[in-house]
Design a protein around this nucleic acid. Sequence first.
DNA 1: CTATGGCACGGATT
DNA 2: AATCCGTGCCATAG
Length: 479
Amino acid sequence: MATMMQVQSQSMQPLTTAHLAQTMSLLVLSNQELRERVLQELNENPALELTDQKVCPNCQRRLTGPGPCPICSLAHDEEGPIVFLSPRDSYRPRGGSTWRGEEGPPEREPAAPEDLAIHILQQLASEIEPEDRPLAAYIIASLDEDGFIQDPPPILARTTRTSLERVKEMLTLISHVDPPGLATEGPRQALLAQLDLIEAGEVADLARRMVSDTFAELGRHDFAAIAETLEVRPARVKHVLEFIQENLNPYPGRGSWSTSPQGRSEPDPNVYHEPDIQISQNHSQPDGRLMVEIFAPVSGWLRISPAFKQALERNDLKGEWAEHLERAALFVKCMQQRGNTMRRLMKILVRIQRSFILEGDRYLHPMTRAEIADMLEVHESTVSRAVSDKAVALPDGRIIPMSKFFDRSLPARDCIKEIVATEAKPLTDHQIAARLNKRFGIEIARRTVAKYRNMEGILPARLRHANGNGRGHLAHAPA
DNA sequence: CTATGGCACGGATT
DNA sequence: AATCCGTGCCATAG
């Protein structure tokens, strides 16, 4: 197969150990982390430069607008998924639906922000001193679409020429009035603020711990992990998660901010992760092929500053300056290589897991990192690094860790869920195992069924009797 | 006696 | 080499 047509676009320089080491270290980073890394590098290396000129990583053409390269993203690959690095930066918190449909103008206008602002200020009026009103107004006006503050408190303090303390007080105040959770730093803080307003109790208490201590796991619905670190039962965790989903809103700005007329296709407040990659289905293509965007950490194009280079050549200042140049060259090269690896990886991943992506957990095709490494002709640790800590947004809006693509137990767990959901009367783990084999051809031991059941937060058969689904008459008269 | 959860082992994966 | 995962055995609860 002509698998690697892009690869030759890299220069043929020998890969030094430094190359490899740095490429590896960049590969593990999530986009968010990578962004920080890039900014840091940009900051301390004068030879590195970020131009606003956007370039398609595939064909090196200049891009005029945002979004995919119109030339090559559609035309490049004759078969297989379309994969490209999106020049759009992705670090700002946002949720699933806002940016999902990338084609048309993403409806942007907040329905009536003034109304909300007034609503909040009215509530605040009795609580704050008149001289604090401008501060409150400034903060409210500066919130983003999700209702979060865009700058950290110290910056706010500086721009409004107030003390950090007052800013913090104000933020706390705002976060506790009507649409609760506004003016926080992110979904996590928003949830915590909302929990403050709920009367203390067992559920609220556990919810608080789940949000503050195991937030990442929460986003993944990883009952098992949460249960373990918090030392509670998985079923309990599940219960509390449901509570959170029903009563709290990780994005307090939505719903009040804009009365999203059509965007209600998103029943999941589970978007706690910043995706590194977006997979969407391209309906305009006849075969409904999948489109993959790999977000670039910064918008624009990283390159060696021509001015710096020239200056260096004219004055032939060696030493430290030359070092900078070399470092910069290495860095951009490593960035490219990272992108290239990610792209090749996603291409394969999407091809293999197409049905999983489109149709759900049950259709996950079992695979290992080693196998993929083999196809890619890279070391398996490379695949490992590329997969770890990355979040993928699926066409249906769910955001999952990339490692989920390699979770062999997923189909079985999904089937167990269905079996339990449709059971007439509680089935024991043994019976579940039997049906699993018969109906789905999945062979796992009864002990394993128990484990999966737990992971899904499903209670054992005995305790499933009254509640749950089959609320019918308790056929509970065995000998 | 049966259904589950705990502990620990061995093989696969990373 | 370190870790994770499925499983078997055994204790315990009902």
